[in-house]
Design a protein around this nucleic acid. Structure first.
Length: 299
DNA sequence: ATTATTTGACCTTC
DNA sequence: GAAGGTCAAATAAT
């Protein structure tokens, strides 16, 4: 059992190394290339998958995959007695094991939108002490289908702005809905007469001051710089190589692949929208961090 | 009919 | 016991 595990890890490590080498090769080829960043994106996905798999394997040993996962003794989430509509208020069955989250397994984001390209299902809301705004709890819509363990908490900031404090837990193991509709800032340039950074509607895809976001992300990444799970989660949550050069992206000179992607939660998007997805993990004070490998430590 | 959200109760941790 | 996190029945939306 343990030997199999080890073998699996070795295989994954080898695969990851190969993908990494391939990525570097392709990158060199593309230095003067014409922007076929799709290869790069694909490779990052591959690397992310390996890293995520490795992380999960490692985490299994400790009996916990992600912050929200129930701990070791596999508690059947659905009691056998539970077969009909009537829960029969007989002796209350023990519900799932609720664990308080570990903050080190989380990634925090301050954003003007709660949209991140993934489909989330709200499963709870709670008034938080000393907070005017309630905290909303979401899990990945694909949890039943793919067992995706990604979760997030969303709480509106109380500084009067329309910003949201979003905390992510766990990692998406479901297929990404869209290679660009991933975890990052979504800028909506639909209404050009308004400054693209400001919008007041929380229910639509809104805009975020880039500087603010960069600063926050940079500060956060500083604090998390040694946290590998964060890197891995970045991959799984949709962090990917930009399909175009960041310089192009930053000045808004991005190609068709960025235009009007189909947001899975399309309530807020229309075909007339164009979005700029920015993953700030790769940007540091306006400079592009070209290297954003997903390392798995100790291997 | 199916799927998503709301909301009060339940559960764990501190 | 308080607070935070989750469940699940009821309800709403599609």
């Amino acid at each position: 059992m343990e030997r199999d595990n080890k073998k699996l890890i070795e295989t994954l490590v080898r695969g990851k190394s190969s993908a990494k080498a391939l990525k570097n090769l392709i990158r060199k080829k593309l230095v003067n290339g014409n922007g076929s960043g799709r290869f790069d994106d694909l490779l990052v996905d591959i690397l992310g998958s390996f890293s995520g798999g490795l992380l999960m394997l490692g985490a299994c040993d400790s009996g916990e995959i992600s912050g929200g996962a129930p701990a070791s003794p596999p508690v059947d989430p659905v009691p056998e007695v539970y077969s009909g509509k009537k829960p029969a208020p007989v002796a209350k069955e023990r519900r799932g094991c609720y664990k308080r989250r570990k903050t080190q397994d989380s990634r925090v984001k301050i954003s003007g939108t709660i949209e991140d390209g993934y489909a989330w299902r709200k499963y709870g809301q709670k008034e938080i002490l000393n907070s005017k705004s309630p905290r909303c709890y979401f899990r990945c819509t694909h949890k039943p289908a793919h067992g995706c363990k990604a979760q997030r908490q969303v709480q509106k900031l109380e500084d009067g702005s329309e910003m949201f404090h979003i905390t992510y837990f766990g990692h998406h193991t479901c297929p990404s809905p869209n290679s660009f509709s991933k975890n990052g800032v979504v800028l909506d340039f639909k209404d050009s007469k308004n400054h693209p950074y400001f919008s007041s509607s929380p229910s639509t895809i809104t805009n975020v001051p880039i500087d603010t976001f960069v600063k926050q992300e940079v500060e956060y990444s500083k604090a998390q710089s040694t946290d590998v799970s964060d890197n891995v989660s970045s991959a799984n949550e949709g962090h990917s190589a930009p399909p175009l050069g960041w310089n192009e992206v930053l000045r808004g000179d991005f190609g068709e692949s960025f235009m009007g992607f189909d947001h899975e939660d399309s309530s807020a998007s229309t075909s007339s929208h164009s979005y700029l997805m920015m993953d700030m993990d790769f940007i540091n004070h306006g400079e592009i961090q070209d290297d954003f490998e997903f390392e798995y430590p100790g291997l």
